[in-house]
Design a protein around this nucleic acid. Structure first.
Lengths: 386, 386
DNA sequence: GGACTTAGTAAACTGCGTAGCATTATTCAG
DNA sequence: CTGAATAATGCTACGCAGTTTACTAAGTCC
């Protein structure tokens, strides 16, 4: 804990930030409300919020029809459109770019199918194109962006480079941060997709009430993202949650129980085959039910290891297979009860395939909050990053 | 993030805290040094530190022989003896009570053997007696204590009660917090022993440089304590790190490879038998070497699960078996390399059986830092707790 | 012993939030 | 339509905290 001395100008800055935070995430507020929320006197809140308006952080709303006695008050609101951030999901089959303002309101979004075989250059070119389309549609330029976060499959290191093999062909040689830095001056971060999906669940998904969350990416691959004490945990080397690497945990094989099911239509892609097995099990096919059961049994060992290690409040079942959560949740809960000291809540994700991009947005917004809105408060237009 | 408005008196309080933190953990400082460290002007630092002296938080050291040019400066130092905290280790075979001042300097310490069969009442009475002896020897009364932390075997819940079976007979019915609260008014906390030992390693042990640590308690029982991002993690229900409960992780059986070794002297206690096997292996006994090897192999699976989940910087090998770390570390490292994506550093603890009590001290000091020394700064003598 | 260096002290100065009062804009009662 | 009640706004005086600046005190170095 490194405390630093405060002088008067710093105090004013802090109070200005205090007002800004009191302004965010609420309906337009009167000066009196702001004063109450910040603990400042009304005159102080007044001059501070007027400074915020002058700097472009807030907007005035002149009084309209008043519903109560007394002089109607001016209302002030956070100017969410002062800046925007991008959240990008670079997947094997698709690229998804989302654009939102400082309050997280979606301003633009574009999904584009990707060639699974495409190499890094081709894939990044497609990303560039998608970004351009989103920005153009929203009438924005590169300089309007304050932060960008990108989600990719597989573990990434601090610098955003992929460190082990991933389903994206040739991706170990890609450096998406460096690539984007040629076009954008704002902070750019690349993160593992499971981790971002976990963040999304806490932001807009089924885990908004929890601070300790294990997110399970269940699909043709199996992975996990961890939120501990409200913060995404990467681990010292960025590979936290990769419990699937343990041989005693059979996550690598688990989806095989579904995809290799002999009854599936021939020629179906693996993802379709798995969906077919789930559907068959739902309709009562006993062999399919057995396959699902085996899948869950293998999956549960790894989940139990995560749960025993972290003792989370909630486990979120997400990923491609979360559409079949109705078949999985109850048996998985029973399996966990066998292994764990304390069984956490088990919930199915509802964010579909937008979780990664949403989590990327949230992390980009966090970046803005932590840099711009915490230590120093420059004028919002075109902030300069070093 | 809930920011709150600041006025001038609060600012002064903050600056006073800032000076206090600048004073702590360093050699006695001159006002000029304090000014530099806090970023305040020299007159400001001067009045603030004089106020601290008046309130009993700091002490003056009049200038002695000066070694440099210029007028010799008065020096101020943090008055560590303003308050004290207790760290207590309630073990099966021993009770260890440590007393230290606000800077962590050991002021008193007493170890007392305990009857392994003793019930909770008898054991707590022995704890009381040991506390009294330590306090008496240091010339202190109950009111001089600002925080107490107790370490016990087995998982505990938020309130300090033991929630599953433990080696302490009848301990599930014990409520050590309630017991101590009858005698002490300061904050009291009870925590799992592995977790406290982990904290101690980061404070005074071999993991001072790391923020992500897995502490391994290796002995007749096997357990783990986790420090993630510099903070002890309890998990949502207090059972984080209990990976040994997983059947695929054979921590329950692992020590059996050593204690059940047929070559050990008959009549030896399990702990002695294990030590004997380690010694035999060290001297080249091939059967003993096999036993150690099997122990390590079983141990490694659980460690690998923890490491893959958390991706820590350091794994600390502690507990009773850490005396035989010379035999364990290298093979364990090799085993981990088989399982893990990134092998963390592996270090042997050197804190012997004092780790738990030391960790308890550290947590008690943290408690003081977070309450007294962060938000409000009352006069240090006999602070009142609600 | 004088020049130099650093610490301690006391003044004037600036900036910020608060308190209190007058002013303004609206609703409600008659 | 008018006046009382109500609540927001705007303004001024005030106190307090840290900074700046200047000066004095207490040592060392040559």
């Amino acid at each position: 804990m490194a405390m630093s001395g405060t002088d008067l100008s710093r105090m004013r800055e802090l109070n200005q930030l205090s007002v800004l935070w009191a302004l965010r995430g609420t309906a337009p507020s009167t000066v009196t409300e702001l004063a109450g929320r910040t603990g400042l006197s009304r005159p102080a809140a007044d001059v501070l919020v007027q400074q915020l308006v002058a700097d472009g952080w807030a907007e005035v709303e002149e009084p309209g029809a008043s519903s109560t006695v007394g002089r109607p008050a001016r209302r002030y609101r956070f100017r969410a459109t002062a800046g925007h951030v991008l959240g990008i999901d670079i997947g094997v089959h698709k690229i998804l770019v989302m654009l939102c303002d400082l309050e997280g309101n979606l301003v633009g979004s574009l999904r584009r199918p990707a060639d699974p075989q495409a190499g890094p250059d081709e894939r990044l070119a497609a990303v560039d194109q998608t970004i351009d389309d989103v920005l153009h549609e929203a009438g924005m330029a590169a300089a309007d962006l304050w932060a960008i976060t990108v989600g990719v499959t597989g573990p990434v290191d601090e610098s955003g480079r992929t460190i082990v093999a991933t389903p994206l062909p040739g991706w170990r040689d890609a450096d998406p941060v460096a690539h984007l830095r040629t076009r954008f001056t704002c902070p750019i971060r690349v993160e593992n997709d499971c981790k971002l999906a976990a963040v999304a669940e806490r932001w807009k998904g089924v885990a908004q009430d929890a601070d300790d969350i294990v997110y399970l990416l269940a699909g043709l691959r199996t992975g996990a993202g961890l939120i501990i004490d409200g913060t995404l945990r990467r681990g010292h080397g960025g590979v936290a949650g990769e419990i699937g690497a343990l041989k005693a945990v059979r996550w690598l094989n688990a989806p095989g129980h579904l995809t290799a099911y002999p009854g599936a239509p021939s020629g179906a892609k693996p993802g379709e085959a798995a969906a077919w097995v789930f559907q068959a099990a739902r309709e009562g096919d006993s062999a399919a039910k057995t396959a699902v059961q085996r899948y869950i049994r293998d999956l549960a060992v790894g989940v139990a290891a995560l749960v025993l290690t972290l003792d989370p409040q909630i486990v979120v079942y997400g990923g491609g297979f979360s559409r079949s959560a109705d078949l999985v949740l109850d048996p998985l809960r029973r399996e966990l009860a066998k292994h764990c000291l304390r069984v956490p809540e088990l919930r199915a994700s509802t964010l579909r395939d937008e979780g990664v991009a949403l989590g990327a947005l949230r992390l980009a917004l966090d970046q803005v909050d932590n840099t711009l809105l915490s230590s120093e408060l420059a004028a919002p237009v075109a902030p300069q990053f070093s």
